[in-house]
Simulated assay, not measured.
Amino acid sequence: MSERFELRLECEEFLFDEAERLDDGKLHEWLELLTDDVEYRVPRRVTRERGSEQSSFSEDGFLYREDMGTLTTRVERYDREYAWAENPPSRTRRFVSNVRVHDESDDEIRVKSNLLLYRNQGDTTEHDLLVGEREDQLRRVDGALKLARRTVYLDQTILATRNLSFFL
């Protein structure tokens, strides 16, 4: 196997493991996959006219703009009785696909992937579907991959979900 192919498989395994931890509600274990200086962003999508030279994503408005401190605070909040948005807990399933390795330098790897997130909560047939592309910067720390930066570009401009109490 080529080195490039093996690197893509390693990145896929990392992303699949991350998705499993999130879907299984192992949020503290998920935090272990992040670097101390992690950046986690989900910019708002803005509808533009065809041919517009402006980005389809806001440079100022974010659904998430987090770092390790705020992510840790959010995860710890789920352990308390005040996490009303997650009572009962969401049932999620993340489908990560089309993993592409774009750049590699020293200990940094830029990876793009597609995400389909299904979420259901309580005893209802209602569910949320979120779809988008993720652009990740993975970093090798002590031989293991960790997430150093994530930007999620959702396809929706308006989210039909009641809250964003889960991670993409």
Rank of each mutant, 00 (worst) to 15 (best):
D24A: 15
L71H: 01
Q54H: 14
N114K: 02
E12W: 04
L27S: 04
Q54V: 10
S58M: 05
A85R: 10
R8C: 06
F14V: 06
D142P: 01
G122W: 08
V111L: 08
D103Y: 13
R77Y: 04
D123S: 14
L129Q: 07
Q156C: 09
R149W: 03
K112T: 13
L147D: 01
T157E: 14
L147N: 00
N98S: 12
E13C: 10
R110E: 15
R74L: 01
Q54P: 06
W84M: 12
S90C: 10
M1D: 05
L154A: 11
I158F: 08
Y64W: 12
S113F: 03
T125W: 04
F95M: 11
E133K: 04
A148C: 04
V111R: 00
L145I: 09
M68G: 03
N114I: 02
S55C: 08
V96D: 01
Q54N: 13
D142G: 08
T124R: 11
A83I: 11
V111G: 01
R45W: 00
D128A: 13
E39Q: 15
D103I: 10
N98I: 04
T70L: 03
N120K: 15
S55V: 08
A144H: 10
L145T: 01
D23A: 03
T151A: 05
A83E: 06
D128V: 13
V101M: 07
R162A: 12
F5Q: 15
D37G: 03
F57A: 05
D155W: 03
D142H: 07
Q137C: 13
D67H: 05
L31V: 02
E20C: 09
R21K: 15
R50P: 11
Y78S: 09
E6K: 14
T124L: 07
E133V: 12
L116M: 08
F14N: 00
T151N: 03
L63H: 10
E135S: 14
L145R: 01
V152Q: 02
E135G: 05
R150P: 02
C11D: 07
S97T: 13
M1K: 08
E10V: 01
R162V: 10
E133F: 04
F167M: 09
T70D: 09
D36L: 03
T92N: 02
V46Q: 09
P43H: 02
R150N: 09
D107S: 14
S113N: 05
R149F: 08
E104H: 15
G69M: 08
I109V: 15
R44A: 03
A83H: 12
D24Y: 08
F5I: 15
F14I: 06
P88S: 12
R139D: 09
D23E: 10
M68V: 08
D79H: 14
E12T: 07
A144P: 05
Q121W: 04
R149G: 05
P43E: 01
D36N: 10
R4Q: 15
R134L: 05
E49N: 13
Q156T: 06
L22D: 00
